[in-house]
Write a protein that binds this DNA or RNA. Structure first.
Lengths: 342, 342
DNA sequence: TGGCATAGTGTATACGCTTACTTTATTCCA
DNA sequence: TGGAATAAAGTAAGCGTATACACTATGCCA
């Protein structure tokens, strides 16, 4: 059917193994033969069959991506395209292909991962999120299958290569920044509490609040999905407090969009009535009005480093797990201002 | 190393071929043997090796997704996660895996596709976009490789299975809708003119304008990337006209975000000063303020049907190409109003 | 000139699975 | 009871590539 190594060998008048060595650019083959074989390959339009190669090789030249449930609203977050861009950049450099696994339920995703791993479809996996008590991560560890995580693993973080921002520090510094603007009542709008990133940022927030000697109030802490319905309630509750916050630290730009929209409907002006500071600096964050002040967490680099780390794991399995910390940077736009004197 | 069909065969005391037939659920195997073999499989934790299977089988149980250049801003459009959700739903149902191909340049993408196809990594491909004179599509046709397209192929549309909205009609109806609100000066903010969808919608817009006996003015037509920088200029130009439009038909919600933001900065109020109507109804479109009136093009279904069509192509290659039209629906929110009397 | 490195190629087997073909066991009817 | 028909399982040959090992030719030195 399609042209194989044997066809090339016949045409170039060499043995199949020689052709194989030419493909692998084996130094034991003379330049002359290499040229001859390459001509034959071009002439026939030969392309190696990856499946055969994988079988003989025990390597697939593919890496798997594990995304959150596609039913989850988070799936639509522009974070993912950007992180994938980072991953695919290095994957391309090293001629690795990308395999995707998603599903509507957690079970579906798990099942997909098992198929990837056991079926030897990929050489390693990048987890695009880190949640508390993740079944998939446990499974991968049990199987001793190479993987890296974007975010901090909930447990065994020392033994798992992971790429993360220092979310604790970031949240702390950002809270301090808000405090430096004169805000004393700062709310925290978080997302899914099962995500480690939520926890880290909340802790950083708490640290800054306590360091500054401000009261840490539970009613200032709110966790919601970013969608309008949920967010609306949360924001209303916050504003209905006797002493409503004058600034909000929001865990994600998309969530900020929702918050912004709700505030707008309620007739609250940002940043005059309330300041807003969020994380991620996704491409859209400059498109809202007012445009979002946001912490650039360098999503591209998170992806790039995660894939790079994974390829290292694959190539030298005995290498030690490491933690890569990607720097963050505040991008000031229009949603933060000094607290207004009343 | 890992457990193979032979190990299972040995344990179950049958021949490897029998095990293989049990996996394929071949009716020629008695129920008794099936049970015995399945027990052995469970006991050993057996999972078939996909590569070996692909090789023997000449089928991979995987489909490839071709996305636009990741350098392209369009890559970040929430359209893609949603379309992928549709694809992955049916892929999961039929136990197909998803392969992704992206790259920073068109060449990289092309190369990736060639590797997918020639390397037999996938059984078929879904093109997630349709552009004018697309090299990849030509290549796939030449190779007679199964593929489907989301959007309308620029040429040979009859011979390529594709899933599309009736974008011409949609744009026409939406323009008519704006006209019915009393608007006579309607601008069109398009995106990349290399995309077939842009062309179709522009033509629909033109049709409606002409049908209504309104003047079709080139200066009302603008094409920009959705990012702030570009969009800003375009919008400013439109508003600087002697007779600026009172309504804008925008090709994409994300672009609308940019437009909205620019208008805001310019002190133009939506929808009082100018109405805005866009396409796609991505999840974010309700999160802007005012929330976007948008045409729901049923992105999920586009993905679902594209994958379904592809699987049909793969399973019966002689089947004829077909066109699937996914219905659209206007979602009225807050960005359109009757033209204000002056 | 014989022997021995060394470079360059070829041979043959394995990777794990599918499947056409064969063989064996069972049933059933004349 | 013999033999055809059928059901069930086994044998073995690939699928396309990689690679350990074997082999040949050449050059070099003693």
């Amino acid at each position: 059917m399609s042209v194989t190594i044997k066809d090339v060998a016949k045409l170039a008048d060499v043995a199949p193994s020689t052709v194989s060595r030419v493909i692998a650019n084996n130094p034991r083959i003379s330049e002359k033969t290499k040229r001859k074989v390459k001509e034959a390959m071009d002439y026939l339009g030969y392309h190696p069959n990856f499946n055969a190669r994988s079988l003989a090789n025990r390597s697939t030249q593919a890496i798997g991506l594990v995304m959150p449930s596609s039913a989850d609203k988070a799936f639509q977050n522009p974070f993912f395209p950007e992180v994938i861009r980072g991953i695919s950049t290095i994957a391309h450099e090293q001629e690795y292909a990308l395999y995707m696994s998603t599903g509507n339920t957690e079970d579906e995703i798990f099942e997909g991962v098992v198929r990837m791993v056991q079926g030897r479809r990929v050489d390693g996996i990048v987890m695009l999120y880190s949640r508390v008590d993740d079944r998939i991560m446990c499974y991968l560890q049990e199987q001793k299958f190479p993987f890296t995580v974007i975010g901090k693993p909930f447990k065994n973080a020392e033994s798992i290569t992971h790429i993360d921002n220092d979310n604790f520090k970031a949240a702390q510094e950002m809270t301090e920044y808000l405090i430096s603007l004169g805000h004393e009542r700062i709310g925290f709008v978080g997302g899914n509490l099962n995500l480690v990133v939520t926890i880290d940022r909340l802790l950083g927030y708490e640290k800054a609040i306590r360091n500054a000697g401000l009261p840490y109030k539970d009613e200032y802490i709110v966790h919601e999905e970013f969608l309008k319905e949920g967010g609306q309630e949360a924001v209303k509750e916050l504003l209905a407090l006797k002493e409503p916050p004058s600034a909000l630290l929001v865990i994600d730009d998309v969530m900020s969009f929702g918050v912004l929209s709700t505030l707008n409907e309620l007739g609250v002006t940002v940043p005059d009535d309330i300041s807003l500071l969020s994380f991620n600096n996704v491409m859209l964050s400059e498109l809202s009005s007012p445009s979002l002040s946001s912490v650039d967490i360098n999503i591209f680099k998170l992806g790039y480093e995660a894939a790079k780390g994974l390829l290292e794991c694959i190539q030298c399995p005995e290498k030690e797990a490491k933690r890569v910390v990607v720097p963050f940077q505040l991008i000031e736009r229009q949603t933060c201002s000094k607290v207004s004197e009343k």
